[in-house]
Design a protein around this nucleic acid. Structure first.
Lengths: 283, 283
DNA sequence: CATACTAATGACCAACTGGTCAAGCGTCAA
DNA sequence: TTGACGCTTGACCAGTTGGTCATTAGTATG
């Protein structure tokens, strides 16, 4: 096991046990059986360690959910698998799940917070499309309320599984949640939530997506990894366009479409969308 | 405003803003416009400040919920008021609600954590009795699942209200949640949770309401603040009556009625009711 | 054995924490 | 005016934090 892996595992365990803020690098290195200095050979800072942990887990989870929702299974079965994916994650990665479920919003820096919200919204969008597929037109007005209700279900049952020492029957819980969802979809009549209430970033102050920020993200991407030719070219052109006095919206939009399906560029793609929205709020 | 009140308000605001752990006494005293040393004239430690904040808010909240559930309203209306009480609390005390909703479990010390769980269980038991009253025998097997589901609803909609900058219609949300609850109670069939899984810690012997405890609460109240004349007199007379060999029930009841609508005495009023019930369980 | 190069260390730093306490302050009776 | 008294202060304490870097240990090559 590489030194970096050792650190990641020790950190994960301690974070889950005592929280991110309360876990010092001293503790982590001690747990991993290395010196303090050695930590900074693998990570430039504590923050980058946190980012890496969150990033890798959330990416994996988003991919899982995405796979379930876009599978060729019957919609009802997909919903069951959706719940199962959530619950199974808790079983498999209880340590990260605890961090994710409990870490207070303000304890983390802005960037990390945005990331979490972003991944969350991603998962929500997957679920929403599944709900549309399942219940169609009759649900339309109530779709966001159902979405939120399901999130409430998942959260509260997850908490139960996580923190209650009991040999839980995950399969049964998943089926139970499917039934609850069906019942709500079929018999609930009133609606409260609208699209704008849900889609706006829920916590925190306004996110400011500036051209400078986009450029710095692009810079990082170009430095750290090799990308396919079309992607690399699109990214470089994006940087070029963004440095202009008034970036042309159509160009940005098109280049963003080019990188939309390239996993390592998901974050950049998201920020670009925000940037476009900021520049053209009227559309 | 007393120095202690100043501190409490500044602390509450900062805790909600940045979290309990991340807020230092330096910050609090700076915000309150006093010196660091002055803090320790009002509180013996940071921990006791946290405890006091949690205690005062949770006591008020428990008393509110209890009042709703034990009112003479129709059960359906009680449920609506139950939700409304939760949502209204967020509106009125967003600062504390943020602390309560977000503070990670491990960040706080064991004792405080137990306190929170304890108050939570208190509220759960109130809700459970309301559910039994509403749905009776047919619910029995599913009562804990419904309980948990409702908690999930409340939590997720509360989060929405708290962190989403929007002029929310709390009345409408409460009605929506009533409907969801009715739907689940009526049409959901399967059950997962059993009593042992939920493990609502029953009131231990130490929390049985005794005359001594009431007297100590009264003592605290008389010390800390100025009260309106009728209130102050009622409280003093309560103390007098409780010190007798066999306090007269009618007197206690009447005096309790006097302070019923005085917010700072909510907790005392609640405890008095418990005390009366203990003394005359047959009524 | 000598050299050269990297990997790893832990003493050290400045900034912060919760908490203490001698010193100064204003007030008021004498 | 004096002096006593209690409220208030902020320098100070020991401890912790994230982060640095001169030094050393380990190893591969000649």
């Amino acid at each position: 096991m590489s030194k970096k892996q050792q650190i990641l595992e020790s950190a994960l365990q301690l974070f889950a046990e005592k929280g991110i803020e309360a876990t010092s690098i001293q503790h982590i290195t001690q747990e991993a059986g290395i010196s303090k200095g050695a930590f900074y050979l693998s990570f430039p800072s504590k923050e980058s360690l946190i980012k890496e942990i969150i990033d890798s887990f959330m990416k994996g989870f988003v991919a899982d959910i995405d796979r379930v929702v876009n599978s060729s299974k019957k919609p009802g079965e997909k919903l069951r698998l959706y719940f199962l994916a959530h619950l199974a994650l808790l079983d498999k990665h209880a340590d990260f799940a605890k961090i994710y479920a409990q870490e207070p919003m303000h304890a983390l820096n802005e960037e990390i917070l945005e990331k979490l919200i972003h991944y969350d919204a991603w998962i929500d969008r997957s679920l929403l499309s599944l709900l549309d597929e399942l219940y169609g037109e009759p649900l339309q007005e109530r779709r966001y309320d159902l979405l939120i209700s399901i999130k409430g279900f998942v959260r509260i049952y997850s908490q139960l599984v996580l923190f209650h020492p009991y040999p839980h029957d995950i399969e049964k819980i998943a089926e139970l949640l499917v039934e609850k969802t069906h019942v709500l979809a079929a018999y609930s009549k009133t609606a409260y939530l609208t699209e704008e209430m849900v889609e706006l970033p829920m916590p925190g102050p306004e996110e400011v997506t500036t051209a400078e920020k986009l450029l710095s993200v692009i810079h990082e991407m170009l430095e750290e990894e090799q990308h396919p030719p079309l992607i690399a070219e699109s990214i470089s052109l994006l940087a070029e366009e963004l440095q202009k006095e008034t970036p042309r919206r159509a160009i940005l939009h098109g280049l963003q479409a080019n990188i939309y399906d390239y996993a390592p560029a998901k974050w950049l793609s998201y920020l670009l969308k925000k940037y476009e929205q900021k520049k053209s709020p009227d559309i």
